[in-house]
């Protein structure tokens, strides 16, 4: 647990970065985890092939909220290609949690990534293979 609830996670959970909604936005995607009812909405504004602004909102456990907070920090200014390629492993490295043997919590950690990817692929008119995110 000391691992799971490191100060950084608790800090992001308590004071999430980029919390809220964007109006107007180019992408707005809501995803939820039917196991626990966690919900995350992720909004993106896109300009010049980059993510110009990002915000998330929703409710959920510390892991899902902190992961969303950290991911949104990463996404600001990112190329769409890089965002599209952003992976599960990137998120795990970003949040620094060893969740490979923790399939239930893994879903929490990846909820915001899923929202970003589903939303971005739709915006680009491309088909997303959600296998790696489920």
């Amino acid at each position: 647990m000391s691992d799971m609830y490191r100060d950084l996670i608790l800090e992001h959970h308590r004071y999430p970065h980029n919390y809220g909604t964007l109006d107007p936005h180019d992408v707005s995607q809501e995803e939820h985890n039917p196991l626990c009812g966690d919900r995350i909405r992720l909004d993106l504004r896109i300009a010049d092939g980059k993510i110009a602004a990002v915000a998330f909102s929703g409710k959920g456990c510390a892991v899902s909220q902190a992961a969303a907070s950290m991911l949104t920090d990463e996404l600001i200014g990112m190329d769409l290609d890089a965002a599209r390629a952003y992976s599960k492993d990137d998120v795990l490295e970003l949040i620094g949690l060893p969740l490979d043997k923790n399939p239930v919590r893994l879903k929490c950690a990846l909820l915001s990534l899923k929202a970003m990817k589903v939303g971005l692929y739709r915006y680009l008119g491309q088909q997303l293979d959600t296998d790696e995110l489920d």
């Binding site: 647990m1 000391s2 799971m4 609830y5 196991l35 626990c36 009812g37 966690d38 409710k59 959920g60 456990c61 510390a62 892991v63 919590r105 929490c108």
Partner: peptide, 22 residues
């Protein structure tokens, strides 16, 4: 102050097994 998942996780680290979810 805490989501049920987090409650169950902290309890687990104390050796207490409870379930969280719907």
């Amino acid at each position: 102050c805490a989501h049920p998942h987090d409650v169950a996780q902290v309890l687990d680290s104390e050796g207490v097994a409870v379930r969280a979810g719907h």
